[in-house]
Amino acid sequence: MRSKITGLFLFQVFLCLVTITLVLIPLFWTDIPWPTIARDHMENFGMAASGARNMVSAIYLGYRVFDTLGETIVLLVAVSGTIGIIAHGGDVLAKGFGDPSRNESLYQEKTTLVKKQRTALLEVVTGKLGPVVLVFGFYVMLFGHLSPGGGFQGGVVVASGIVFLALGGRADGSTRLTEAGVLAKLESISFLLLILASLSGVVFGGGFFANTLAQAGMPEVGFIVLLNAIIGLKVGAGIGFMCIAMLGRAE
């Protein structure tokens, strides 16, 4: 094992675990009955108010859509930051860790030494599976109000599909979906669309994040489908962009 594990370290770990367990046990072993307010309300009024059969979608895209906006922003910032750090390259990485023994040449030598280890098996399989995964991703995204799924889930599957396409040797230009520029544009457009969707309620009366499509006469669930599509595009483009950038750097 490591030489850094001393008696003091083990004692500190032990102390932390014991005190936290002491604090958390009464939290989980209590006799107070489980609350049913939200459950009863969702059972009786949930589907009528939001129009979706999947109650989870109704909650995070209807009742609590502001939290979803927050989480989408967290993903956007994480992707943006990662791209920024990767783009700076090896010298910033070395300086950023404050360790003078990791000099720039280490990073450069690594990237030139790594040979393309892809075999034909990997390229053929991922190249053929890529479009299938993309279709599945779009299905999960758009049917989120009826079956388990939704914007985030579908978006991540779409991002995996984009990675498959990139790995599958289609960098010869047969698809534009694996270019970094296209993905960046998609991501910023969908973020703008999300903000505009939240503001549409303000402009057309009804308040912030109100269901404008319902006011225009469409079924209520239309707003949930729209939000699913926008979030799915955003998440897919964002994560895909980050993966393409890392793929380019690690090669």
Binding site: T111, V156, S160, A250
Partner: peptide
């Protein structure tokens, strides 16, 4: 379950592996 499988067992692992490679 879908989110955890897609993110944790999929994208997140791939990103970590690329980071280790670099």
């Amino acid at each position: 379950a879908i989110t955890e499988a897609a993110v944790g067992a999929g994208v997140s692992t791939v990103i970590f592996v690329w980071a280790i490679r670099a």
